[in-house]
């Protein structure tokens, strides 16, 4: 069995687990929707104001909700001993980590991308920004999952891991946030968005090989 088959084997099992447990993915989307819906109550229902802040609100909410489920990325496997066995499986731990990140993105990032346009309508965002927002989220959310996995691996075994995780990870999310929002704003203003999307793509390409290594190192430390 090759590495790819084993990778798919883990992704399938984790998707299976996510489906059986069900709530996690739904909760993330619900949190996303609620967090965004709170803003019109806070800043007032003025369409211009909402349209102005729409991109930023959606991105910040996406960031927070993607982080919400990160704590459990390795936690359950760590607690029930599965992580030890995954470490001892005859494939490199980096591939295991990449499989887990893929599942995390499929169960949280992807639903966020689906829900985002609806929320953009709710916030009166200019229609010009929709396509770019989806593209930016599609490039940005996998990066969020990848970076988040490093934090999730580092907090294993610590109490109040969730708070620690946000302290570790949120600063690292800032570049993604800046370029994600700026892409949408540029599209709405009628400017070129290539640069921002390329930078987001660059983040993804950088995080893709680096983060699994860092996360795997964290996991090895955790099971020692």
């Amino acid at each position: 069995m090759g590495g790819v088959t084993r990778f798919m084997h883990i992704v399938k099992r984790d998707l299976h687990l996510a489906m059986r447990q069900g709530m996690d993915s739904l909760m993330v989307v619900m949190f996303f929707v609620l967090a965004v819906v709170l803003f019109p109550f806070g800043v007032g229902p003025e369409p211009n104001v909402l349209a102005r802040i729409a991109a930023g609100v959606i991105w910040v909410a996406a960031l927070l909700s993607s982080m919400l489920s990160l704590e459990r990325l390795f936690q359950t496997d760590y607690e029930d001993g599965s992580l030890e066995l995954l470490t001892l499986a005859p494939l490199s731990l980096e591939i295991v980590v990449l499989a887990k990140i893929t599942t995390h993105w499929l169960t949280t990032g992807l639903p966020l991308i689906v829900a985002a346009p609806l929320l953009a309508v709710l916030l009166n965002m200019e229609p010009d920004g929709f396509g770019v927002m989806i593209a930016a989220l599609a490039l940005g959310t996998p990066t969020l999952s990848l970076i988040g996995a490093v934090g999730a691996a580092l907090i294993l075994g610590s109490r109040r891991g969730g708070v620690l995780l946000s302290l570790l990870i949120l600063p690292l999310y800032i570049p993604v946030l800046i370029f994600g929002v700026s892409a949408v704003d540029a599209a709405i203003g009628g400017y070129e968005v290539n640069a921002q999307l390329l930078i987001l793509g660059g983040f993804l390409l950088g995080a893709l090989p680096l983060c699994p290594f860092a996360a795997a190192a964290g996991l090895r430390q955790a099971v020692e």
Binding site: L17, R20, G81, S82, E84, A89
Partner: peptide
Amino acid sequence: NGRLHYVGHLDAVKPVL
């Protein structure tokens, strides 16, 4: 890893599977 089986203190049984 390919030639060993390890049984530790934890049983690695997923409750939902």
